[in-house]
Amino acid sequence: MERVSRILGYTVILFMILSLYGAFRIAPTERIMGDVQRIFYFHVSIALQAFIAFFVVFIASIVYLLKKDLLWDRLASCAAEIGLLFTTLVLITGMLWARPVWNVWWTWDPRLVTTLILWFIYVAYFMVRSAVTDPGRRARFSAVIGIVGFIDVPIVRLSTRWWRSIHPLLSQEGGGLDPTMMKVMLLVMVTFTLFNLWLLWYRFNLAQMDKEVEDLKMTLEEGG
């Protein structure tokens, strides 16, 4: 297992270098936006990772409620942490891109609003976790939030789209993407998916070790 994770780690580093090279050297400069458009490869890939991470939270939460094994709660909370990290990065990279291109840091576009609401939901997820001490109870509560929160996202998306439907949308889906750009995009997406996996792997192992330490402490206290 140790070997697999190491190989995965090196692969991530290699792919990350390739991605940087691809995004900054190989991909052509966008005609209107210029170099700033290059952040888009990372921005979109990170957004995808946030979604994958929250999907893991959703599934792990359901499995926890069915099986009552705290392992699934640890997996859910680790994935939620990573999802929150990626959501924060999506918001930041989006703002960096929006300022030169849209001339504003923020606009109440449905996609942006949905991401922001997503961020709020999972921040609340962690606030609840930190306010409950009993592990079983904490796991049940956060599983419920993990499920409700994930299901809510498409509805938030729909409602925010209808809400601004009278206004012109700033972010219209671009028509065809240049083939080279598309290839770089795919490469960066794969890179970040591997990165996500690797992060989750390490974070989850850390959580497992944490738990083992807690268990050992308990045994020691009981023994002494």
Partner: peptide
């Protein structure tokens, strides 16, 4: 409220 408001955004808008 911290937990409730984000989830309720669709209800509030609608």
């Amino acid at each position: 409220p911290l937990l409730l408001f984000p989830i309720l955004v669709p209800v509030i808008i609608a």
